Amino acid sequence: MILLSKHSNLAHLNTSTDIPKLSEFISLFEGLEKKLDYGRLIKEKESFESLLERFIVQEEEVQKVKASKADNYNIFDILAVRHYEAKVHSPFLAHLLDPKGSHEQGKLFYRHFIESVFKEDLIKTNLLNGVNLQVETELSSQYGFIDIAIRNNSIDNSFILIIENKIYAGDQERQLERYYEYARNILRLSDKQIRILYLKPNRARPGAFSINDDLYKKLKGNVLQEIGYKEDILPWLKNLKNEIKAERVKHSLQQYMDVIKTL
Rank of each mutant, 00 (worst) to 15 (best):
residue 135 V to N: 01
residue 43 K to M: 09
residue 28 L to A: 13
residue 256 Y to K: 03
residue 63 Q to C: 13
residue 161 L to H: 03
residue 198 Y to K: 03
residue 176 L to A: 03
residue 61 E to T: 14
residue 213 D to S: 14
residue 225 Q to V: 05
residue 81 V to Q: 09
residue 127 L to R: 00
residue 133 L to E: 07
residue 117 V to D: 01
residue 67 A to Q: 11
residue 142 Q to W: 09
residue 94 A to N: 01
residue 145 F to S: 05
residue 158 S to I: 05
residue 244 I to L: 12
residue 215 L to E: 01
residue 86 A to T: 12
residue 81 V to M: 12
residue 74 N to A: 04
residue 183 A to E: 00
residue 74 N to R: 07
residue 176 L to M: 07
residue 211 I to E: 01
residue 230 K to P: 04
residue 46 E to P: 05
residue 200 K to G: 01
residue 198 Y to Q: 02
residue 147 D to I: 02
residue 5 S to C: 14
residue 133 L to R: 04
residue 58 Q to W: 10
residue 207 G to Y: 06
residue 263 L to C: 09
residue 89 H to G: 01
residue 136 E to A: 06
residue 212 N to L: 12
residue 248 R to H: 15
residue 249 V to S: 06
residue 127 L to K: 00
residue 115 E to I: 04
residue 205 R to E: 11
residue 69 K to D: 09
residue 243 E to A: 13
residue 254 Q to L: 11
residue 33 E to G: 09
residue 238 K to H: 12
residue 118 F to D: 00
residue 88 V to H: 06
residue 5 S to T: 11
residue 145 F to G: 00
residue 98 D to L: 04
residue 169 A to K: 11
residue 15 T to Q: 13
residue 12 H to A: 09
residue 191 D to R: 00
residue 219 L to C: 03
residue 63 Q to K: 15
residue 234 L to W: 06
residue 93 L to P: 00
residue 81 V to K: 09
residue 154 S to K: 08
residue 120 E to M: 08
residue 72 N to I: 08
residue 239 N to F: 10
residue 83 H to E: 15
residue 168 Y to Q: 14
residue 192 K to L: 07
residue 5 S to L: 12
residue 170 G to E: 13
residue 89 H to K: 04
residue 39 G to F: 12
residue 52 L to G: 03
residue 116 S to R: 04
residue 169 A to Y: 07
residue 208 A to Y: 08
residue 41 L to P: 02
residue 66 K to Q: 13
residue 146 I to T: 03
residue 42 I to K: 11
residue 216 Y to K: 06
residue 169 A to N: 11
residue 123 I to Y: 03
residue 89 H to Q: 07
residue 131 V to N: 15
residue 119 K to T: 12
residue 213 D to I: 15
residue 46 E to V: 10
residue 261 K to E: 14
residue 11 A to V: 08
residue 85 E to R: 06
residue 236 W to E: 01
residue 198 Y to F: 13
residue 202 N to C: 11
residue 185 N to A: 10
residue 31 G to V: 05
residue 23 S to L: 15
residue 152 N to E: 07
residue 234 L to T: 02
residue 223 V to A: 00
residue 231 E to V: 08
residue 214 D to F: 11
residue 111 R to I: 09
residue 23 S to V: 14
residue 156 D to G: 07
residue 2 I to H: 10
residue 4 L to N: 09
residue 150 I to D: 00
residue 183 A to L: 03
residue 251 H to W: 12
residue 139 L to R: 04
residue 247 E to V: 12
residue 62 V to N: 07
residue 187 L to C: 09
residue 207 G to P: 03
residue 262 T to H: 12
residue 24 E to L: 13
residue 203 R to K: 15
residue 162 I to C: 02
residue 122 L to R: 08
residue 212 N to Q: 10
residue 71 D to A: 14
residue 91 P to R: 04
residue 182 Y to Q: 02
